[in-house]
Design a protein around this nucleic acid. Structure first.
Length: 875
RNA sequence: GGGCGGUUAGCUCAGCUGGUAGAGCAAUUGACUUACAUUCAAUAGGCCGUAGGUUCGAUCCCUGCACCGCCCACCA
């Protein structure tokens, strides 16, 4: 069957996506006869739209998934999506806003119904986009973090941890987003360097209103809630003031001066206003000194009634007004420019307010202990290795995790409060009465859980944990995990902790951290910058294979991507297609039982065929190693180098005149077949399509066995000979042709001088390999010598090609070139000789190094002699 | 402020056990060649950031410095 003249990726991609899925080729079942290989996808947000980061992340996973599938593993790649609390709620709130409504207008239930509606309609988008990429996920298993079973698992986790004393409720300063009106975890508050001011304010002494203590602050509006001023006990300037009382300006409240080690003598004035309800450090100090906690803000960031004259002002308006008021009273000393890191909401970029509120927390230290051990002892390996240091550093300084969120979309906290104020009831199902007082009026906690509180169960909750079942037993623990460095703490670390705590085993053995996709200028790709390249657009324009191949070949560390970079993949796919066309056109006598290993016994097989077989297997071996070591770009370079650089550019050209030989046909066909297997994990569509033309009866390529490595067929000597003989020969001849400006139509009459018949054979073989020259001048090598005096010599290894000169040669130019080459060669020889004359070197360097050097020196010397011969024949 | 990574051809990067450097793209030159112009061939281009050290020998190991980037962090 012949292939069409162009590879039309648009025509084949959807066909294979459908075929693979319809035939359930990616679905894994418990199979004790086979080892399992499991990866859980980092679940994208349901609101997500495929971006380059997803494309990279999922291609990496798909490569190893397809590779392992072909290598006889029962492969499960668990797909799914994450309900992404705040993000999803934002999307729907925006929709409502267009209708002029707010969520409160709908009420909780109606709003959540709207969210589900949205989820059902658009939630599958990103999974369909992943299919376009060729992702071979176990689609029937697709999970969503708010599926019923999954939600049960989340609830169970909460209840269990509560029972174990690892979940508690407490009043703490948390990161509060006044726009989203919810708590954020420490990781969700992103610190950005911001230009701010450091305001120096006078706080008068109660006893003597003309005496002041000057404090410095960046957030003057919080002074409304000040309950002390702190100085360092070692600070001589303020020693006498400790214990005195100040009058808080504008508010006229009495506040004490306390001493605290925390205060930095160098910073600002050395005196700190203490606002325990609005700053994490002040909160700690407040606790230490038993200060009152005065919350002066509404949840939306407006000043509340405690702020007196500033009641109802937005926090930033209040700041301005307060400064004005202070100026009026001459209490503002100065305003310094000040750069500092300010927390911003990772979702909406609003400045986060440290805010005192009652939240639920998970005690992390007890969970972290084991998770530190497993990375230290290698039960979990993180690649590249440096990330494990990063991980350990964070884990060793871990802080408790605030898991409650004041939003509606998510897993409702399974806690009920008795109207009579008994202890909270934590339960799997809605209680009917309070177990303490039998009160029936119970109210569920209005908050939901942090999204990550469900994601950290992903590696086992997706297999229906906490139910005990065969799937869970077979597929857990997983094999590897692929993700970006940004979510090591959000997700990876917490999965390891959850896995160890609930499953008593690590969730995966290897973690591969890949780089971030950036634009050509090194900026992160983002919608707001407008620099994002849409993977779907690339798929549409260049094909999914091109997208995959190009992304991965650029993926060492961070990737700098521009549109042209995808040409490399497109061109390679095209090359594979056309080479396959050529083979299919010519290889007609195919023996289905032909075995490549028989070439070892073939006595008369040409060098080039032995070479390509050897080259294939040595490449195959290296590709396997590279994939296993997560060196994907290296694997792709190997594959491309073999297929394009060796198979197409050399082998297919060499055998052009030998297609009538059935052995050659079979070898070529077999190499193509095996190459398709080898390339398939990287470029599934083009390879599957070609496979369908050549080996349809064996079934889909994606479930074919990976070719076995035939070590006995890897022959370094053959590879060396080929390189030496062929490549050198050809380039030498071509070189001369170009240098001498000989038209292709003119025949080159060459004479070959060799030392042995074997060598002659070798060179004749290789001479026939010269691509276009070969066809134009295939006779040249065998021709008789005519007149050596009017010939020039091409150096071919240690033989010489003597080529007659024609009238068009620029002798002077050629002479110059050769003289320069002699010069260069001599120089190289001298340095080498000097080294070999160095006694120290000879004594201390390893023997083989010395031997190699000697060999190289001899080669250089021969080369010089040969070049001089050319020169003499030129003159 | 702390930690980490980078600095190799004009550009993007390889170079995994130390032996005078590789690829792709771009450039220049040549080729319509019956699988492919998304092609083929050739050329040119590098004191491997800087200063020291270890070594017979350093792009590679050690130290300092410079520049770029990332992450973490409660100095108000």
């Amino acid at each position: 069957m012949e292939l069409s003249s162009k590879f039309d990726f648009k025509a084949v991609e959807d066909k294979w996506i459908k075929y693979w899925e319809d035939n359930n080729l990616f679905h894994a079942k418990v199979n004790p006869a086979k080892p399992s290989y499991t990866i859980v996808i980092p679940p994208p947000n349901v609101t997500g739209i495929l971006h380059m980061g997803h494309a990279l992340n999922n291609t990496l996973q798909d490569i190893i998934i397809r590779y392992k599938r072909m290598n006889g593993f029962e492969v499960c790649w668990m797909p799914g999506t994450d309900h992404a609390g705040i993000a999803t709620q934002n999307v729907v709130e925006k929709q409502l806003a267009k209708e002029g409504k707010r969520r409160d207008d709908l009420g909780r239930e109606a709003f959540i119904a709207k969210l589900w509606e949205w989820q059902k309609e658009y939630g599958g988008t990103i999974l369909h986009q992943l299919r376009k990429l060729g992702a071979s996920c176990d689609w029937p298993r697709t999970r969503f973090t708010m599926d019923d079973a999954y939600s049960e698992a989340v609830k169970y986790t909460f209840v269990e941890l509560y029972k174990q004393g690892l979940i508690y409720q407490g009043e703490y300063i948390i990161n509060w987003c006044p726009r989203c009106q919810t708590a954020l975890s420490d990781e969700e508050a992103e610190h950005q360097d911001t230009h701010g001011n450091l305001y120096h304010i006078r706080y008068p002494l109660k006893d003597n209103p003309n005496e002041f203590l000057i404090v410095a602050t960046t957030r003057p509006e919080t002074m409304l809630g000040d309950t002390a001023v702190a100085v360092n006990p070692k600070d001589k300037r303020y020693k006498k003031l400790i214990g005195k009382t100040l009058m808080l300006p504008l508010v006229n409240r009495e506040i004490p001066v306390v001493s605290d080690e925390f205060v930095d003598l160098e910073f600002g004035t050395g005196a700190v206003k203490v606002t325990p309800a609005h700053d994490p450090n002040d909160f700690q100090m407040g606790k230490r000194h038993n200060l009152p906690f005065i919350n002066v803000m509404h949840p939306d960031g407006r000043i509340n009634e405690k702020g007196g004259a500033f009641n109802n002002l937005d926090r930033f308006d209040a700041r301005k007004k307060i400064i004005e008021a202070l100026k009026e009273k001459d209490l503002l000393v100065k305003i310094d420019q000040h750069m500092h890191a300010v927390g911003h909401c990772y979702r909406c970029n609003t400045v986060v307010e440290p805010y005192l509120s009652k939240q639920w927390f998970v005690k992390m230290q007890p969970l972290a202990q084991k998770a530190i051990e497993v990375v230290k002892d290698g039960r979990v390996n993180i690649y590249p290795e440096r990330w494990s240091k990063f991980y350990l550093n964070w884990m060793e300084n871990i802080r408790d995790w605030c898991i409650s969120r004041q939003i509606w979309w998510g897993h409702r906290i399974p806690v009920w409060y008795c109207a009579k104020g008994c202890a909270p009831i934590v339960a799997m199902s809605t209680p009917t009465k309070c177990p303490q007082c039998n009160e029936t009026k119970l109210k569920q906690d209005p908050d939901v859980l942090d999204t990550w509180f469900s994601s950290w169960l992903w590696p086992f909750a997706t297999f229906n944990w906490p139910q005990k079942n065969e799937d869970l037993k077979y597929f857990y623990p997983g094999s590897s995990l692929f993700t970006a460095s940004e979510i090591i703490f959000f997700w990876v670390a917490r999965m390891i902790m959850a896995g160890l705590h609930f499953m008593d085993d690590v969730p995966f053995k290897e973690v591969y951290i890949h780089g971030t996709v950036r634009d050509a200028k090194g900026r992160k790709m983002s919608k707001s910058l407008g620099n994002a390249i849409d993977p779907l657009e690339i798929i549409n324009e260049y094909g999914a294979d091109a997208l995959r191949f190009s992304l991965i070949i650029n993926s060492g560390q961070d990737l700098f991507i521009s549109k042209e970079k995808f040409e490399i993949g497109r061109n390679f796919a095209n090359k594979i297609w056309n080479a396959s066309r050529l083979v299919l056109m010519n290889a007609k006598d195919i023996d289905p039982n032909f075995d490549l290993s028989t070439v070892a016994q073939m006595k008369n097989l040409d060098l080039s065929s032995r070479w390509i077989v050897s080259k294939f297997y040595s490449t195959l071996e290296k590709v396997g190693v590279s994939i296993e070591k997560f060196r994907y770009s290296e694997a792709e370079i190997l594959v491309q180098d073999f297929f394009w650089g060796n198979f197409c550019d050399w082998y297919l050209e060499i055998i052009k005149d030998k297609w009538n030989d059935p052995t050659i046909q079979n070898i070529t066909y077999k190499i193509l077949e095996n190459s398709l297997k080898m390339i398939h994990p990287f470029m599934p569509f083009v390879t599957e399509e070609i496979w369908n033309h050549i080996q349809k009866e064996k079934g889909a390529l994606c479930v074919q066995p990976w070719p076995a490595i035939q070590k006995q067929l890897i022959d370094n000597q053959v590879e060396g000979q080929m390189q030496f003989a062929v490549i050198d020969t050809v380039s030498a001849v071509r070189n001369l042709r170009v240098q001498w400006n000989i038209k292709p139509q003119e025949k080159l009459n060459c004479h070959l001088m060799t030392k042995s018949p074997d060598e002659l054979k070798l060179l004749q073989d290789s001479a026939a390999t010269i691509k276009y020259l070969a066809r134009l001048e295939s006779l040249a090598i065998e021709n008789q010598i005519k007149d050596i005096k009017n010939s020039a010599t091409a150096i071919v290894g240690n033989a010489r090609l003597v080529i007659p000169l024609s009238g068009v040669i620029d002798l002077e130019k050629e002479k110059k070139r050769i003289l320069a080459e002699i010069d260069q060669t001599k120089k190289a020889g001298e340095t080498l000789a000097a080294r070999l004359n160095n006694d120290d070197f000879v004594k201390r360097a390893p023997e083989d190094v010395v031997a190699k050097d000697k060999e190289r020196l001899t080669l250089l010397q021969t080369k010089i002699r040969e070049l001089e011969l050319v020169i003499s024949s030129l003159s």
